[in-house]
Design a protein around this nucleic acid. Structure first.
Lengths: 367, 367
DNA sequence: TTGTAGGCGTTATCAT
DNA sequence: ATGATAACGCCTACAA
């Protein structure tokens, strides 16, 4: 019986080939193959080509025909097959992003904005997340390229050279984000971490502080963390103010790590009145540790962060910080990439403002 | 000249058809077409099929041949074409997720875990993010289905019925997360928000509290928020303790909204000694507003949250809350989906523990 | 172990 | 305005 139906199937419709059925254990799992465009065309009494046009570019088809096709598609619950379309058009309507831990609030915000902006344009986000590991990042990027993304978003400039090579060979447009590429070698949208960091220090200098300490983010594989640290050094050097090496500690970006780092700093290199932190979670950790130690902020010590996460403004005292427009960066990255795919040429590098936000956590240096 | 090269191209290699070239403005943009498997095969001196096998299932091919193919692929910088592969195999090695705002820390954590777990298995995450809008969610899900995801992760059970219909028609395996589906109609992994919420109230009752207030998350389209609120009602009802309606306010999940909601509560319905919040950001907002008003926690008022975000334990006093294992949920959702794709049958519903974490923000009721 | 060839579901180029 | 048909790049029975 299978034999004969097999032979018959071969002749007309290969999709019902019994071998296919026999491979399926649970029939309920796949009740019937999903309808394809051919099915829609048949149901509407038109050719495959017409059905395709009616759905893709309605203007090319008579209104009445168009309606019949739309109706048939609706009745059958037709869903276009993206892979087939991608194969035929050589575009996937998909954008990839390789992000550092997306559970960092700023990247979470950026991801959200990116996803929303893309979907508004009919694109979908393919997201890969790594833990500041260049090898993992490269691997993730390769996976995204294989999936046929039309463009890619990466964070910062610190990447395995093989990543750049991969993207260049594939001729894949990509955007560097958060950081801007001063050399203009890559298309980028972000802020000047270094400048903003200088502004923080200048603010503290104006308040009379001369004894500085820094809790920096981990600078390996992270140009943002390095730039922020460099900004501090720049501003101090300009004024001829020194800062001993032991007043600088590095810590992973998190509140608990910020607490711990502050404790280390107080133990190893006490006497500073101003603390500059690599991001807000670190600063909040430091603030909390101050509270636990009975240190008053800003009376005994001034603390500044970087990023302006939601919480920064809600704390008491509010955290003085730099506002990094994460949502804007995500949104603009999407827009720039889509513009380039449409043949436009947005400015090679786009610098967003990152203003200093002065709140209660910084005040005059104690005398 | 184009004419002749065109004719020649037609005969041998259509990819170099001059029409194609003439359409490309900037030659540097697409230096040469990406190498295909055919090119690798030719370079290695084997057939297309052998090249395919050598790369996909090395065991099927002689070691020496395999090496030649691998070498050729490496030299040419060959990257498989995902769409073509997906079309041929009917699998995209891609999993979709439709999440509420991924800038909510718990969803950010879940996303991160999901992405990492998937990529470890060779899969990639297609992420869509909405703002608690069922229509947008449906649209996003449809986009993911079109992209050919092999499975889908959704959050909770509150969805447009059309979403379920879509997934069922497509025969697409999906996982409900965060919430568990008691009826077992859908495969799910999450926690019992209702039970955990009861535990919070029981804890407060044991501390002698009788005057309760609630800052709930917005319950529309959000079964987690509803369940948490119901849990509070359950526990109070069991003990015959009433709570007037004006002691319950709803607010979007965020720190600033928590502050504002607390202010409203104090203005409209003062006199409560215990405050149960729909999540940690709301609770942290309430804590901060207490600080600003000179209310001591827990002496004057006890406050509890839900989720156990990083910050909850770092605050002083620490926030009493329920630990929701977001990372585990993301990880398990990935594992369960992959297992099902591999033909296994993980338990229909998987309930993860959500223990009460007692910290300093709750204490004996003032007398 | 390797090669041959048909098919995956669309789009797009030709005719008509 | 519509229809026939050749790609798109890969996988995989089947044959050798």
């Amino acid at each position: 019986m299978f034999e004969s139906s097999c032979a018959a199937a071969r002749g007309c419709c290969k999709r019902f080939h019994p071998c296919w059925y026999s491979a399926v254990v649970d029939v309920k799992q796949s009740p019937r193959p999903a309808p394809r465009l051919t099915d829609v065309a048949r149901a509407a009494g038109v050719s495959l080509a017409t059905a395709s046009r009616a759905l893709a570019d309605p203007a090319l088809v008579r209104a009445e025909t168009r309606a019949r096709v739309a109706d048939a598609a609706g009745r059958l619950g037709y869903v276009p097959h993206g892979a087939a379309r991608a194969l035929a058009t050589q575009r996937s309507l998909t954008i990839g992003a390789v992000f550092p831990p997306v559970d960092n609030p700023i990247f979470a915000t950026g991801t959200h904005a990116l996803a929303r902006e893309l979907s508004a344009a009919g694109y979908t986000l393919l997201l890969a997340s790594h833990d500041y590991d260049p090898a993992a990042e490269l691997e993730a990027a390769r996976a995204l390229v294989e999936r046929g993304v039309d463009g890619l978003v990466v964070v910062g400039l610190d990447h395995d050279p093989a990543l750049y090579a991969l993207l260049e060979r594939a001729g894949l447009p990509f955007e560097v984000t958060w950081t801007i590429d001063r050399d203009g070698r890559h298309s980028s949208v972000g802020v000047s971490h270094r400048e903003a960091s200088r502004a923080v220090v200048q603010h503290l200098l104006e308040l009379g502080h001369r004894e500085f300490a820094v809790i920096a983010g981990e600078t390996a594989h992270n140009d943002r963390a390095r730039d922020r640290l460099e900004g501090v050094r720049d501003a101090l050097a300009e004024r001829g103010i020194g800062m001993p090496a032991r007043r600088i500690v590095e810590a992973p970006f998190s509140v608990p790590e910020g607490r711990a780092a502050f404790a280390r700093l107080v133990a190893d290199a006490p006497g500073f009145t101003a603390l500059v932190c690599g991001n807000d979670p670190l600063a909040i950790g430091a603030l909390l540790e101050c509270g636990a130690r009975g240190l008053a902020v800003p009376r005994d010590i001034s603390i500044a962060g970087f990023d302006d996460v939601d919480l920064a403004g809600a704390l008491t005292p509010g955290l003085t910080t730099v506002r990094v427009p994460s949502a804007d960066i995500g949104r603009r990255a999407a827009q720039r990439l889509l513009a380039r795919l449409a043949g436009e040429s947005p400015p090679r590098t786009e610098t967003l403002p990152a203003p200093l936000v002065v709140r209660g956590s910084t005040g005059p240096a104690p005398r």
